[in-house]
């Protein structure tokens, strides 16, 4: 009984750690501290955003070949560093964003995971406001991450972003999700 209780408490602590990391990560991205964010990207990362499909009988289906992002460490780094250029007009001035991370669930006993890795699912809502205008848009997505422990924090070892729109209502995607 006591052992079971301890296990539950342990799981609760892990969930809290994961949530705090995701909130911290969201804050870095909202503040556009992209290099600090990139410090939490594992060098073997696969960062994907497949294209959602809209089909007659299936609620959630994604393209096998089509995507918006399919980045490794090098190409993700290039995308981060591009925004250091004074010619990266899409983010000059930066998009005002606010990320809401909810419905976080943590799985530990997945066979594909290493000892120090966690499988984390979450919902993400991003508010975006751009330019000298009242206009705004949203990205709504489900995220599936593999987070890896590194000291007292985590690094993102794998991320799949499953956007809810098939036709996007945005100029571009010049932020990280």
């Amino acid at each position: 009984m006591l052992a079971e209780r301890e296990e539950q408490l342990e799981a609760l602590l892990v969930e809290r750690e994961v949530e705090q990391f995701l909130y911290y990560e969201a804050e870095l991205l909202d503040n556009r501290e992209l290099h600090e964010w990139f410090d939490h990207v594992a060098d073997d990362i696969n960062y994907r955003m497949p294209r959602r499909l809209m089909r007659e009988n299936t609620a959630s289906v994604f393209s096998e070949r089509g995507y918006y992002f399919n980045e490794d460490y090098g190409s993700l780094k290039a995308r981060v560093e591009r925004f250091d250029s004074e010619y990266a007009w899409a983010e000059r001035p930066p998009t005002r964003t606010r990320r809401y991370v909810t419905n976080v669930r943590v799985t530990r006993d997945d066979e594909a995971l290493a000892e120090d890795e966690l499988f984390v699912e979450a919902n993400l809502l991003v508010y975006l406001s751009r330019g000298d205008s009242e206009k705004h848009t949203f990205f709504s997505a489900r995220r599936e991450d593999v987070l890896r422990r590194r000291g007292d924090t985590f690094e993102i070892a794998d991320r799949e972003i499953r956007l809810d729109q098939t036709v996007l209502s945005t100029d571009n995607i010049s932020i990280f999700l």
Binding site: Y67, Y68, F69, N70, A88, A90, D171, N172
Partner: peptide
Amino acid sequence: YKMYTSNFGPTGNFEQDDVPI
């Protein structure tokens, strides 16, 4: 296809900067 998405489309490193203009 990777080169296409890296350069053009909504996430393209070129195209991101065209549309706001």
